[in-house]
Design a protein around this nucleic acid. Structure first.
Lengths: 210, 210, 210, 210
DNA sequence: ACTTAATCGAGACGGTACGTCTGGTCTTGTC
DNA sequence: GACAAGACCAGACGTACCGTCTCGATTAAGT
């Protein structure tokens, strides 16, 4: 999460303010809510945070990196509560994700940084580490829990297992994001139930074939 | 597709140049390929098109609207070739969509305009009409064809049918976009086959339940 | 606007031309009063006159020429009323000129076109013909009348006479304009009386020397 | 002369560059010579000065203010050399003034800013302080020197003295400017001698009356 | 206590793009 | 063929941000 690598050799001089870091990220989220991605400016964030622009640029290379860090923390709130069955777990986490996408700071920032990342490999990596992998972790946890319950067989081939997890992740995350941000329709319980039924039904069908 | 609604009453004065329209949209796509969304500027597009900035702003309100119109035409190329079975049809259209997302102008523009649209209702509507509905049409055509083949039952309830089509659309489009632009992994034949299997398996399972 | 009155002779000429001319010059003066020189635009004048910009440019090369013609007519109002003595005549014409410089259209236009003319020889000539010579005529008339009254001797050398007339003209016009537009002080009766006393006193003194 | 009043309290932040000030004013004069007033643009001045447009607008509100400051320094060169008599002093300063009006930057700028000032009170004040008062000072100095020589009586009434000085100033400055810029005739030694004779003759005549 | 050196706020700097406005020209269809 | 309407190219306008750069003033950690 921390973007700044200190010179490991000598650490003399005034240390950076930890308060400033927090104030900047808070200000960034507040600005995202008020202004949205495209009208958010570095100068405005600095002013809101009561900080000089220099202080901001000393820590982040630009708007993209700053916003990724500012919204990344939102994805830490996602967790996989044990609801007793795979279907219930999936429905639960999808609803959580949908709730996150209702928040204006996530809504406006997520697609924007992904769009920027199509031409910026370091940014892509940063998004992967800060955001994508945190979501994917939930898929892996959910599978382990389902296997422990006996709802899913233990996959012997680790490569195939990883490929399947990736597929599931793209299907879940992609469908929810598309529903919420492109189709702009509510991700409500009814939709989630029908989506989960298709997903798990499909997984069961392909498992039976193999 | 056309962005400018003429005064319907009398049409006096010099008419707008159709050549300029085409040159601007071509220039926009070229600039997207070369520069990407964030570094594309209105002035540069005008220069490339051999057109004054005023001519550009007379037709489009800004970068967002211009880019939507410029990339919309790409989605007209998508079609649903009859490959003999529902699975083959789905795989075919998904591969086409993936190929489209390989094109840099689509890659850089698609997420960007969606991101902007989270705060711009008219833009959202424009995207829906120009892009989203053109993709969704393929889902509806595919279902009709599958029903004609007898692969899918004819849904009696039109509301439920529409809901299911929407769900399928979000799953397909969302998964492919997420795979291509967020996970940044190739949408190759193997992935498409596994994805299609899960999707159709899931549809079959839920159909049997009902 | 629409003149159907011409059927007698097949004339494809410009029957509205005279109306348009007057409307344009009126509109120009009105725009000068409202907006001043620098904010007056050709498009605005055309709109006020109910005329297309083309019509305007067909008659005048640009803003400078148009404004010169529009304000030139104001200088036609100046005349030399016979007040019985040279001093009274001078005072009368100076007060008339001062009154003209109170009018906002003259105030804002006069210096502006002179400024433009410092780099535009044709414009300078146009100003001379349309404006300057109309003022200078008053000096010549005043001298003749004073000579007729016996207040001034008849100059035998025509070259010297012209030089003196030019000098007087520059002194009168220059002093009044400078007082009104640069010093921005009122050209009232008191000032005019003192100015005239100096001018005529100086002329008398130099005449006595020769 | 300096156009920007600093916050008098604390002076934090990077101080403004004095070099930039000088470079901008030099560039302005150069642009006036090359292009004249109406074709001078802020962007061009900024480019010539090697300065960003923002730096320019941070110091001057617009073209008018900038040009006044740029040209004002030219009027500092005017001085009143002691030539031994009032007539010689007047002739000397008028020739200096005429030489100044030969310079293209003064020629093109002077009338233009006066024209603009007819609708802009702050600009009028700026011109008065930066340009007009510097010229008027010469009149006051000349009178003091003539009084010291005994060529002119010491005026007892200060109000009348001031009125007379204003009158003389408007006559001198107005006549020279009108001769040079409106009549566009040379202000040569012959003209200056005749003009001075009229002026001083007039002053003497009015003084004798009183 | 005293360096030392990186930090802090403020704000000016050179740039770039913005979206608008104007100047002057050129098509249109109508009269 | 002149006219109004209005689109066209060109380019200046003044503003907003960008990311960098001085400034003088704080901080601690290491003498």
């Amino acid at each position: 999460m921390c973007s700044h690598s200190r010179r490991s050799t000598t650490r003399t001089g005034r240390p950076r303010s930890a308060e400033a870091d927090a104030a900047i990220l808070d200000a960034t989220r507040a600005a995202l809510v008020e202004l949205g991605w495209s009208k958010l400016t570095m100068g405005d964030v600095a002013t809101r945070a009561g900080v000089a622009k220099t202080t901001l640029y000393r820590r982040w290379a630009g708007k993209n990196e700053l916003v990724v860090d500012a919204v990344a923390v939102l994805f830490d709130e996602l967790e996989l509560p044990d609801r007793g069955s795979l279907a219930a777990d999936v429905e639960g986490v999808v609803l959580q994700f949908a709730a996150l996408l209702e928040r204006p700071e996530a809504r406006t920032a997520l697609m924007a940084v992904v769009a920027e990342s199509t031409r910026d490999e370091p940014l892509r990596e940063r998004i992967r580490v800060s955001i994508v992998d945190r979501q994917k972790r939930l898929v892996l946890e959910g599978r382990e829990r389902a296997q422990a319950r006996g709802e899913l067989p233990t996959e012997s081939d680790p490569v195939a297992a990883a490929r399947t997890a990736d597929l599931i992740f793209d299907v879940i995350a992609g469908a929810v994001v598309h529903r919420a941000l492109v189709s702009c329709e509510p991700v409500d319980e009814d939709w989630v139930r029908r989506f989960t039924a298709v997903l798990l039904g499909g997984l069961g069908a392909t498992a039976r074939e193999a």
